[in-house]
Design a protein around this nucleic acid. Structure first.
Lengths: 161, 161
DNA sequence: ATTACTGCAAAGCATTTGCACTCCT
DNA sequence: AGGAGTGCAAATGCTTTGCAGTAAT
């Protein structure tokens, strides 16, 4: 199930796109779906299902976590959001333009960035022998400002085994 | 807990490095740990815990899955292997040299590649405002040769919602 | 001999599913 | 009206943990 509508930008356009995609795919537009999509589309945080659930509950106290999950996967199938693996819980991304991520190794903060340079690089030949590359996604991992301030105080507490 | 020994290459060197790292960190060298590490170190597949478990059982029929998990996390803490999130189950990588991945969206096949070009690119300024980037990891996702052959036969069966 | 390591079985958690009720179109 | 969508509770599946026996230094 795949919409073929053009990608949009601002939240208003995203909502319109969302509604059109649902209609196009014969999926019913419900209050829950609207609120859930809006939450992810507006978020900069790449939230996990639990976070979306908590946020959505403020506006819709009766939603259940499983509806959030079901809706999130449905939105993914309709190409309205993306899901980003993640070590523990899955996180979601409402930004559908090609982009890359900075990820904090300490707190998991995740931010989008764009890069023409990265886009211009061509895929190594060895990769072409394995299959057809469709997307190139770069992850820069490190420590965010907030966490590096903290660690300056607390110093090393990392070794736990 | 972190070893500071130099990184090594061939399986023999990896095993030596492994033993040295364990000793250096006061971790006992057991038969299980040896077999488990060797399995990941020799694998090209980026296996998950279950796969490692199955492979290890051939040589060591009595190991338990939880020992595999415990060992895998321990190896990660000692910087002997890396863990790669993954949508469902966690996968492990015995290649400790900086490298990137090609990943098949269909079957999950994962292969390592190196790229000087990618390494030379500088980190965008916006990213520097968020924190300190330590590693740059590129994921090229697409369809592997084997899967594209299959889909040529079966054609589209993807839409499920 | 000590103390870490292991296997077992049971627990934890994130995510999924079956079912009966509710609400869009 | 009729079927998709929802909430609830129970189930699933990966991973973790407590404990008592086992093995490495």
């Amino acid at each position: 199930m795949q919409s073929t509508l053009p990608k949009q930008d601002g939240i208003k356009e995203k909502m319109d796109h969302f509604k059109a995609a649902l209609k196009l795919n014969g999926v019913k537009l419900t209050h829950q779906r609207m609120i859930i999509f809006k939450e992810v589309a507006e978020s900069e945080d790449h939230p996990n299902a639990e976070s979306v659930y908590k946020a959505v509950r403020k506006k819709l106290p009766m939603v259940s976590l499983d509806t959030v999950y079901r809706t999130l996967w449905m939105l993914q199938d309709l190409d309205l959001i993306k899901n980003l693996g993640g070590k523990d819980r899955v996180r979601f991304d409402g930004n559908m333009k090609p982009h890359h991520h900075f990820i904090c190794n300490e707190c998991g903060l995740m931010r989008d960035f764009f890069s023409n340079e990265f886009h211009q690089i061509e895929i190594p030949k060895e990769v072409k022998n394995w299959g057809n590359g469709e997307t190139v996604h770069i992850e820069i991992k490190g420590i965010c400002i907030a966490c590096s301030k903290k660690s300056r105080v607390k110093s090393k507490k990392k070794s736990q085994l």
